[in-house]
Amino acid sequence: MTLHEFVQQCINGLSLGSTYALLALGLAMLFSIMGLINFAHGELLTIGGYVMWTLLHHDVSWALVVPATLLATTLAAVAMERIAFRPLRGASIETLLVTSFALAFFIQTVLQIGVSAEPEPIAHTGWSDRGYSVGPYTIGLIQIITTAVTFAVLVALVVFLRRTLLGVSIRAAAEDFAVVRLMGIPAGRVVVAAFALSGLLAGIASLLFFASAGSVSPTSGTAPVVAAFIAVVLGGLGNLAGAVVGGYVLGFADQILAAVHSSTILQFHDAVVLAILIGLLLLRPQGLVGRSRGLA
């Protein structure tokens, strides 16, 4: 691989990693606060995709599609918390995990029966496959938008988490929920805020993902969310900064390996990426950013 190809793949990896980072951040937030590995996070992405499909199908302008999608995924996340997870507060990690797995299948099945099991086309936007040449490199407009939006969101999120009471409560709850409650912060508000925030991040990821994916099906959310799981573990489970790092590492690894692989191995690309990441965890079981807390 030449240096030129390497840089090109890094550019591609930057936008792919951005999508993973947005999803991973939402997952890491919920895990660190309440020990929930939220399988149904991918279904937030899918719900966003179906909202986009419905609105674009009826020729609604993008100026409305964007807020509507974000609102839908945020509300869906809050509804998930209220209906499925609030009755289980304080339950074991395993109970929460199984419930979220069941919830994911429930949403998928409802979409299968209610809409269709087949993929629905999302109208192409015209601008989403436009590309620019910068020197020897090609950069897609959607890649620029994805990366720029993600960076903006990350900056906004850092400001929110550091400067507002709710944000500080969320960060504190990620460290030690019990102490936060002893400090007189209402637990319910922190959990709902975390869910809403994870829904908002999933909505942004959804807009960026489906603008280039071109179609949405009931199982669209599964592959990206599993990738985001891997990113979360890679960064150090429950570590917010680690989740972002994990997302980008996964994005870069994916794109760079895709360029290295010959066509025969390319079919096994996803398997190779996952195997390498498991290998990385073998060296650092606590994740790339995390501190060691494992069994001796």
Binding site: I93, L97, V232, L274, I278, L281
Partner: peptide, 21 residues
């Protein structure tokens, strides 16, 4: 070598690897 939730996700990754293969 992983523990708890990390092990759960790594085992899930095994399922994905097998599916690809």
């Amino acid at each position: 070598r992983l523990d708890g939730a990390s092990a759960v996700i790594a085992i899930l990754a095994l399922l994905l690897i097998a599916d690809v293969v």
